[in-house]
């Protein structure tokens, strides 16, 4: 069956030479050619996706990426999840608080107090946990549909828009599970607010 390699030249030195040449070949092939070829193909056939799915407003200015969340400080807008990095797209991540971390518990309690103050019409037992927890990336562009719905009374009161009108906006921007089964239903906050913005004027 298997025969031993006993041909001349099969020494450590010749292995080292092959190893060195193989390293150079694969650095060029896998490290340079492969990513550049992929970039070329992606840019040629899918430029919008390959360049970060940038969203433009009606005037044609880039307002963000549909995949990257933004901070919405104004209570007239729908708000996203907690982000310890303030949705800074040059970074990513969170505080990595353990479930037993007292700082995390305090932050959550503060969020609940703030909620009670800003949303007196919605009791906290309807406040979805996703809205007051920090996403893993700190850039989560989505909230759950019920996280959007519980914000409707506040926005309606501040803007004078009817609850029905806001509910229709939320419904329009509610994305279902992928292929009907994978993941969770969700609402893209930036897209939703982009549609809300013209109504505010």
């Amino acid at each position: 069956m298997n025969k031993a390699a006993s041909l001349p030249g099969s020494t450590g030195a010749s292995y080292a030479a092959i190893a060195l040449r193989a390293s150079i070949v694969f650095i060029i092939l896998c490290g340079i050619i492969y990513p550049l070829v992929c970039t070329g193909i992606a840019q040629a056939i899918m430029p919008h996706n390959a360049n970060g799915s940038i969203i433009k407003d009606s005037a044609g200015n880039a307002v963000g990426s549909e995949l990257i969340g933004q901070t919405f400080a104004d209570p007239k807008y729908f708000q996203g999840r907690v982000s310890s990095i303030e949705y800074n797209g040059a970074g990513s991540g969170s505080n990595n608080y353990a479930p037993s971390n007292p700082d995390m518990l305090q932050r959550t309690k503060d969020s609940i107090e703030a909620w009670k103050k800003d949303n007196p019409d919605v009791p906290i037992d309807r406040l979805p946990v996703a809205l007051i927890t920090n996403s893993g990336s700190g850039l989560d562009p989505h909230i759950t549909p019920d996280s959007a719905e519980v914000q409707i009374p506040r926005i309606s009161k501040l803007t004078g828009l009817s609850a029905d009108q806001l509910q229709q906006l939320v419904d329009k921007h509610t994305e279902s599970r992928d292929l009907g089964v994978f993941g969770e239903p969700r609402v893209n906050v930036l897209k939703l607010n982009l549609d809300l913005q013209p109504l505010l004027k």
């Binding site: 479930p99 946990v129 996703a130 927890t133 969700r186």
Partner: peptide, 17 residues
């Protein structure tokens, strides 16, 4: 804390997943 935590532990997780 009395919030609607029926979704589970969402700290550090993404809504889409």
């Amino acid at each position: 804390l009395g919030v609607d935590a029926s979704q589970g532990s969402m700290e550090g997780k993404e809504v889409r997943f």
